[in-house]
């Protein structure tokens, strides 16, 4: 299991794709928003939590189709399916690798981007906690979407269409928590809901992803 994780990590570092791409995309979104809504710092500060969450979500979406597509093309997926690794473990590892290479860097970079958007400092902690709690769910849900569309020729667009509605609950509670934090309100309720969704997703969705992947391999 560790071997697969290490391999995916190596690939992400070397292929020149996965790793920095999400971060760069996040930065571009954050840079473009002021051009779209104007440079007033009060307005930017108000919408900063939402923008950061949306940016993280889109950056995450960007790299989803790489989760299985490359392994599918070169036949690794067939070979992994006949290896001792259970399919459920395989999809979990894939999701974890995706989170480590995409989600975690986004979480770490979020404070810097929050600075660019004039977010009040007391909002940093809830923002980071909400992203830390929410992005794993994004990766796991995204892995399910990637498993659904693996092997489809025009899978990329379909993947977004399938995954985005599934992102709604996570986005709502995550952004709500970040927003309440920035405005100095109590964040307990959205925090618990977000944590609940993430835990439930991580616990249950790999079974669906594995089932879907088995269907796609046959």
């Amino acid at each position: 299991m560790i071997a697969l994780l290490i391999r995916d990590f190596r690939l992400a570092m070397r292929a020149g794709g996965g790793f920095g791409l999400g971060l760069a995309f996040f930065l571009i979104v954050v840079t473009l928003v002021p051009f779209g809504v104007g440079p007033q710092s009060t307005l930017l500060a108000t919408i900063a939590p939402g923008i950061l969450w949306l940016g993280a979500l889109l950056a995450c979406l960007l790299s989803l189709d790489r989760i299985f597509a490359l392994d599918w093309e070169d036949g690794s997926l067939d070979l992994l399916a006949t290896s001792p690794l259970p399919m459920e473990a395989l999809v979990t590892i894939k999701a974890l690798a995706h989170w480590l290479t995409t989600g975690l860097p986004l979480v770490l970079a979020a404070p810097v981007f929050a600075l660019l958007l004039n977010m009040p400092t007391e909002g940093y902690r809830p923002l980071i906690i909400s992203l830390l709690l929410g992005t794993p769910a994004l990766s796991v849900i995204g892995t399910f979407g990637a498993a659904l569309t693996v092997g489809l020729k025009r899978g990329g667009l379909l993947l977004s269409l399938l995954v985005l509605p599934l992102y709604v609950p996570t986005l709502i509670f995550g952004a709500e928590m970040a927003r309440r934090g920035a405005e100095g309100f109590d964040t307990t309720t959205p925090l618990l809901m977000l944590a609940g969704i993430t835990c439930g997703t991580i616990a249950l969705l790999p079974f669906a992803s594995a089932a879907v992947l088995r269907v796609n391999l046959r």
């Binding site: 659904l148 609950p169 969704i197 269907v215």
Partner: peptide, 27 residues
């Protein structure tokens, strides 16, 4: 294959649709 995949999507989607309903109410 399509029947299998859409069935599972429908199952998973139902759970998330329900979650979304409560999330939207809360939001």
């Amino acid at each position: 294959t399509a029947a299998d995949l859409t069935s599972i999507l429908c199952l998973v989607g139902s759970v998330f649709a329900l979650l979304s309903r409560y999330a939207v109410n809360f939001w």
